[in-house]
Design a protein around this nucleic acid. Sequence first.
DNA 1: ACCCAGGTGGCCC
DNA 2: GGGCCACATGGG
Length: 220
Amino acid sequence: MLDIFDRLLQAYGPRQWWPGDSPLEVMVGAVLTQNTAWRNVEKAIANMKERGLMEMAALHAIGEGKLAEVIRPAGFYRVKAKRLKALIDHFCERHDGAVENTRRETTAALRAGLLSVKGIGPETADSILLYALDRPVFVVDAYTVRFLKHHGLYEGSDYHDVQRLFMESLPEDARLFNEFHALIVCLGQRHCKKKPECDGCPLADGKRRNPCLATQCKNK
DNA sequence: ACCCAGGTGGCCC
DNA sequence: GGGCCACATGGG
């Protein structure tokens, strides 16, 4: 698995992924992007910032209905407002609303806490752990599963099976997990500029490996 | 006018 | 435990 990472990194370079001005913004983005194009999430985040809502205290104070209207462009806005409020409540109760306070806790304890929040599933929890809290957990998403299938590396799609596949064959390193997942997503995006034609893939080695990961790709 | 996007929880069998 | 379904907006 490490050799695959090296080839992707060599070919595409660092993605410096998941832009966010703060851990809170990354956490919010993780919820807002659930089954949603990032472009729509950006609008919602911009709305929140305009209203001074990218702050723990402000988010804790605002009403759910009000928040829903602000994040409307992200889609599923009523359910996401509920999920954001639940996440913020959890964070305030459990960590007194400060990211710094998570440092004393183990990754396993933090993960269990996040998963106990209604609306936070394994992917959102792991995205928060890796991209906001810098913990070494591998994030699995639709792109990751598609990536493995397309390259004939693994057929299954169970979240923890796939996560184990990566984590058991890679050194436990948050930087590595971050960059690897970012590269997979970059390749998978429909209009990825860096994506090569199928015969120019850095993973192509004569076997059945195909760089085009987009859902509508005909080259399956 | 479709189809899709960095999921999750609830219900049904 | 697996197979649907609702949740919603914006871009191709």
